[in-house]
Design a binder for these strands. Structure first.
Lengths: 359, 359
DNA sequence: GTGAAAGCGCTAACAT
DNA sequence: ATGTTAGCGCTTTCAC
């Protein structure tokens, strides 16, 4: 049924080994004329290598495993897309397994993936502190994208949260705000800590006195942003701007401000973090710092593929920067808002709209 | 390094064939005592079958391919999760390939997946009208989830949009609305057509005269909802409620209504469709019909696995129903709103919040 | 009910 | 530069 090396060997008159050398992209020398003929015949016969056979023999599968906590988690799809685009360019495929934030399921996933079918593993939103023995002794190349807890480790790619916070605060300062509140995320998350430090450092850069009263705790959820903003509003000398460690809490803060009869950005300016999908459709549209999820996926994958190709080698922690997107909640004038992103990907959908029905 | 059948054969004293029969779950008769011993030893040695070898021999891989237009598309992650959960329960893994709405890339993906490593293929949001020859002659089992264009075909799972529209309109009617506007999606989409017919049918069920003036075209995007609502507001006898064919247009409609100085739901009630993530965080929170994406993924997978197990067999088109979620935009009283969903999955995040940092 | 052995399609070591 | 061949780990036919 399916055409194999042997068929092509017969059809061209060369040996099966030669054909393999050409088609497997080996760097073994083959004369150009032979190579061309084989390529051509293979093409015309529609040859597709049997991956199972190839990997049984060479123990390379051109497949990598992705372990995610949950593919439905907001950051996961774009990270995965970054990974897959990079894989695709290099002829790799990806196997995705969900761990549901459960260490046992994660270990199980590692075991499954390691048994053979993958050349490397990427952990997305890695949140476990247990280092996996199985993983380490398997010595498969692996990368961690957006590690959530723990100290910096090798082979990991994380957002540059300190830098991002700096962008947000600097923008607010440039708009004249001297009292900017901060709504933090949970203290055990990397992201929270780095954004907090970024906030403080940028104030210091501009010689603005840090006021601990202006910092409120939050837990990433919208309600916590709401409460935090209420606390900030109750202050005798209340802030004129609020930087929230994520978009959800920023939205909660906006609602709290509106409920107290004030306006955003008229009375209080808001900047969020993450650039979640809803940031550009809520009202007022949210100014926010981009979490460079797609790029993080790509970067991690490039590094992983390099490791696979070179057989080993590790990387230091890589930080990826996201830009500030200026929309309505910070009160900057329209001129600077003109640069609202146009996502080339959404253009595809437009194409669909113009298609004719099948009938 | 990795333990194989031979190792277990040696350890137990049985033949490699017997061990295989036990471990591969063959229905070949093996005496219970032998079976138990093999199972136990395999477990203790941490045996994991080499998938490549198994599939080379048996041409089954316990892996299925998923072809999506873009994993970042809003409905895709939950569909994929439904698929993966069902696969996981059955010991299958999934390979995901993005086609970027490009027929060529899709054909390429099919060819890649068919070459061997998958037992079946699931197309998510299938939007091409070209039937793939390669796919058909490969006679691999396959399913289509949420087919967008074209007439009903076998092996496909779609939302029951007619039913969902019916729920939305019935609810509005139960709230006393006799003039309900409808904002449609693009006419070449299945979803638009079915929701439109559902809207009309439900009016008819309640002996409410259908008024074509109350129907406005849209293109799924927020701006089109805005414009459509403006048109509706301009009517001399304007509607007291609007049913939008998706949440994005519903949101646009809300903004148009607010901009004209009216209130939602006070002056005009709104019901959307899809239950997108933002529906419960915008203000007012959106009443909407659930697009049963997760279930669709599961259903399709169950059917695919059945086909794989039984070797062939096709299914008629399967329709999956979603429920109505009552929130703020329809003006129903709080009592009925109490049933706001609690997603068990978000509970996982809470667990994370309480974790201690690594140090 | 159990074992021996062939061979799935491919790559790589070795031979020419 | 090209050909020959062993064998990756497993399933399955065939013998017992």
């Amino acid at each position: 049924m399916s055409v194999k090396l042997e068929d092509i060997a017969k059809a061209t008159g060369f040996s099966i080994a030669t054909v393999s050398r050409v088609l497997a992209g080996s760097d073994y020398p083959v004369s150009p004329s032979v190579r061309e003929k084989v390529l051509q015949v293979a093409q015309s016969m529609g040859y597709k290598p049997n991956i199972a056979a190839r990997s049984l023999r060479s123990s390379r599968t051109n497949t990598i495993g992705i372990i995610v906590d949950d593919i439905m988690s907001p950051f996961v799809p774009p990270i995965v897309r970054g990974i897959q685009d990079c894989l695709h360019e290099n002829g790799f495929l990806s196997l995705i397994v969900n761990s549901d934030w459960d260490p046992d399921q994660e270990q199980e996933a590692i075991r499954t993936l390691i048994s053979r079918p993958v050349d490397g593993i990427i952990f997305v939103e890695y949140s476990h502190r247990v280092r996996s023995e199985i993983l380490e002794q398997s010595n498969k190349p692996h990368m961690f994208v957006h590690r959530i807890f723990g100290s910096p480790i090798r082979n990991s790619v994380v957002p540059d949260d300190h830098y991002g916070a700096t962008l947000a605060v600097r923008h607010l300062i440039s708009l004249g705000h001297r009292r900017t509140g901060y709504i933090n995320g949970p203290e055990n998350w990397h992201n929270s800590r780095a954004r907090y430090v970024g906030y403080k450092d940028e104030l210091e850069n501009h010689n603005i006195q840090f006021d601990p009263e202006l910092v409120q705790p939050g837990d990433w959820e919208i309600e916590s942003g709401y409460k935090a903003a209420q606390n900030l509003l109750r202050l005798q000398d209340r802030p004129t701007a609020i930087f929230a460690a994520n978009d959800l809490m920023a939205l909660g803060a906006i609602y709290a401000i509106q409920d107290s009869g004030l306006h955003v950005p008229g009375d209080i300016a808001i900047v969020g973090y993450d650039n979640r999908d809803f940031a550009k459709i809520v009202r007022p549209r949210l100014t926010t710092v981009v979490m460079p999820v797609y790029e993080m996926g790509r970067v991690a994958t490039e590094s992983l593929l390099a490791q696979i190709a070179e057989g080993g080698g590790e990387t230091e922690e890589i930080k990826v920067r996201g830009e500030l997107i200026i929309r309505d909640t910070c009160g900057a004038d329209d001129a600077s808002k003109a640069r609202e992103e146009i996502n080339p990907r959404t253009a595809f959908r437009r194409v669909l709209l113009n298609k004719q029905p099948e009938g």
